[in-house]
């Protein structure tokens, strides 16, 4: 099976001279269709910069990104909107991602500019997107302040699904939610993979969440990929010293403190 996304030697350097930061440093990996790949690492390890590079929100310093065999590294602006029909993202903060004055219907309907459908077809897409994330049509009339954090994040996933993307990037999408809601939102992601074959790139600092959802895990440290492989191997049989340290620091519910 050919890979959906391939990243080769991707590098992003911020700043100049003395203050140079290699936020993403020669990162290469690939994602197969219908899989959930998780990037884990501490704050400042370059996880979010990697997400922004793949989304085409910032240009890389060097390296190459391919989606379905097509080079998408430095797309011109007119091709970016087409790219975003295929690659969508959900970000960390479910509170600031909303326009407080738009109800959910207006938020979802804004995607018609990108997908070019209207009327019944648009309604159908909305219904489909809401079904996928387990929300009722009732939420269409609600404003963001009337929704809980978990509901907001599910609306954001529904918004991304309006595009029927092939790749969904979830950048710390569950980090600001309570533990009791986190599992619900993660289940939405795993169900999307199972029911629609959606490919997901999940970014988190929480190895517990990575352990729950991932097929593959990539570990980042200071911009570099230090370990990658099937989730079971990376989490239960880590080879890299840094991964071992990261796992040792995770507070557990059972066993030694």
């Amino acid at each position: 099976m050919t890979d959906l996304l391939t990243v080769e030697g991707l590098t992003k350097v911020f700043g100049r001279k003395a203050s140079v930061v290699r936020a993403v440093d020669d990162v290469s990996f690939s994602i197969s269709p219908g899989s959930i790949t998780t990037v884990v690492g501490e704050s400042g390890s370059g996880k979010s910069t990697l997400a922004r590079l793949i989304l085409g929100l910032i240009p890389p310093t060097s390296g190459r990104i391919e989606l379905n065999g097509k080079d998408v590294t430095n797309l011109p602006n007119r091709e970016l909107s087409g790219y975003w029909r295929e690659v969508q993202a959900v970000f960390q903060d479910p509170f600031s991602a909303f326009n407080q004055f738009f109800h959910v219907r207006r938020l979802l309907a804004r995607s018609r500019r990108l997908i070019g459908v209207d009327g019944d077809a648009l309604e159908e897409r909305m219904q489909f997107a809401l079904d996928q994330v387990g929300l009722d049509r009732e939420v269409l009339h609600k404003y963001p302040h009337q929704l809980s954090g978990g509901q907001r994040q599910r609306v954001m996933i529904a918004r991304a699904l309006m595009m029927r993307p092939v790749l969904l990037i979830a950048d710390e999408a569950t980090s600001m939610l309570d533990a009791s809601l986190r599992a619900n939102v993660l289940n939405v992601l795993t169900d999307l993979r199972r029911d629609m074959g959606l490919t997901i790139l999940f970014i988190t600092h929480d190895i517990g969440q990575a352990c729950y959802v991932s097929d593959r895990v990539l570990v980042m440290k200071q911009g570099k990929l230090v370990e990658s492989g099937p989730a079971d191997d990376v989490i239960f049989r880590p080879q890299n010293e840094y991964t071992q340290q990261l796992l040792a620091d995770v507070p557990r519910l059972h066993g030694e403190v």
Binding site: A179, S180, L181, R182, A183, N184, L186, N187, D206, I207, G208, Q209, A210, C211, Y212, A231, D232, I235, F236, L247, V250, P251, R252, L253, H254
Partner: peptide, 17 residues
């Protein structure tokens, strides 16, 4: 609903509350 990197997490569906 706690998600910790322990083997049973990978096979069980956590329902949350």
């Amino acid at each position: 609903s706690v998600l910790v990197p322990e083997p049973q997490i990978r096979t069980r569906r956590i329902a949350g509350i």
